[in-house]
């Protein structure tokens, strides 16, 4: 008996299976590569070979693609990333007071007191300093992203990089590179800049108390962890499954939900083989001209997304059996 959690993020799609005691039994980490539907299908193919779909007694989704994920797989809980991350972190360590989470396009800070989220903040409309920017810099410097952190740790000294904006940071990095600074030093400078930016922006006005957990894909970067520790002056912890925390949280929340409803909405692994595709169209109902996406499974319509009124999404909620909104 397992609970399935799917974190459909901008850069990665993570699937986690937990048992009824909330221990992680399976984790799958895939790149979303701009195609969220295909990413889930790929994940389900892997699960299908190892598990029977009847073993899945609850399913939850999170991440920026949580609605589309729930439409195609059937979910008992569709939960925002903040709540999902906090739930998983508290399961991992009851003493946690602060969660630093940096993902593909978001960065977040979550403040916890006595096991309850008491405050949180996210980056504003701008995605500077998140995982996708680090990815891009790694690519530009031709360093595998996995080794990015090691480069930073090898640096003897640091180079000052502008941290306010990703575009500013990039031009500053190029200028420094053209002056002859070593890659290692520039990368360490970049980590320092991102941490500075995070603390001044996302973390502004928040008291960061230990114990701090560092989660999300960027937590893989040892240079970022070191830069945070230097800036904060104490040790921060990266949970073993740092990149899976959203998916684990979604699975646990779904498990709680099914305890109440008694029955899961999960539709099984069959979607791995089905032909799932989307078509988008401009709605002509009013001058807003919303771009509506229609998701098909073979010949059936699974749902609609993207309208501002509920002309189309209302139908999705009917199909999914969710309350409106």
């Amino acid at each position: 008996m397992y609970y399935l959690g799917v974190d459909l993020g901008s850069v990665s799609t993570d699937l986690a299976l937990v048992d009824k005691n909330h221990n992680l039994v399976e984790k799958i980490y895939l790149k979303t590569r701009g195609n969220p539907i295909k990413a889930i299908q790929e994940g389900f193919k892997i699960l299908k070979d190892k598990y029977d779909e009847r073993e899945i007694t609850a399913a939850g989704t999170t991440g920026s693609g949580r609605m589309i994920a729930s439409a195609i797989m059937g979910a008992d809980a569709v939960k925002n990333e903040i709540t999902a991350h906090a739930r998983a972190a508290l399961e991992f360590d009851k003493e946690v007071r602060t969660i630093i989470e940096i993902g593909g396009q978001d960065s977040k800070i979550i403040i916890i007191n006595k096991g309850i989220v008491t405050d949180f903040a996210m980056n504003t409309v701008c995605a500077a300093g998140t995982g996708s920017f680090l990815d891009r810099q790694a690519e530009r410097l031709e360093i595998p992203i996995e080794e990015f952190g090691d480069y930073a740790l090898r640096a003897g000294s640091t180079v000052r990089i502008a941290g306010r904006c990703a575009v500013f940071a990039e031009s500053d990095m190029i200028h420094k590179q053209q002056l002859g600074y070593a890659k290692e030093e520039i990368i360490r400078g970049l980590c320092d800049a991102l941490v500075r930016n995070y603390l001044n922006n996302v973390g502004k006005g928040k008291t960061i108390l230990p114990k701090v957990l560092f989660q999300g894909g960027v937590a893989a970067n040892k240079g970022m962890k070191a830069a945070f520790e230097k800036e904060l002056g104490f040790e921060i912890f990266v949970p073993e499954n740092y990149s899976m925390m959203g998916a684990i949280g979604a699975a646990i929340i779904a498990g709680d939900q099914v305890k109440k409803t008694g029955k899961t909405k999960f539709r099984g692994f069959k979607l791995a083989e089905n032909n799932i595709f989307s078509r988008s169209f401009d709605c002509d109902g009013c001058p807003n001209r919303c771009e509506v996406v229609k998701i098909y499974e073979n010949d059936n319509i699974l749902g609609y997304f993207g309208d501002r009124c509920s002309r189309w999404t209302g139908k999705t909620n009917e199909i999914l059996g969710l309350r409106s909104g």
Binding site: K79, T83, I253, A254, D256, Q257
Partner: peptide
Amino acid sequence: ESHISTLG
């Protein structure tokens, strides 16, 4: 309470 609503 431990309740977390399921949508959102």
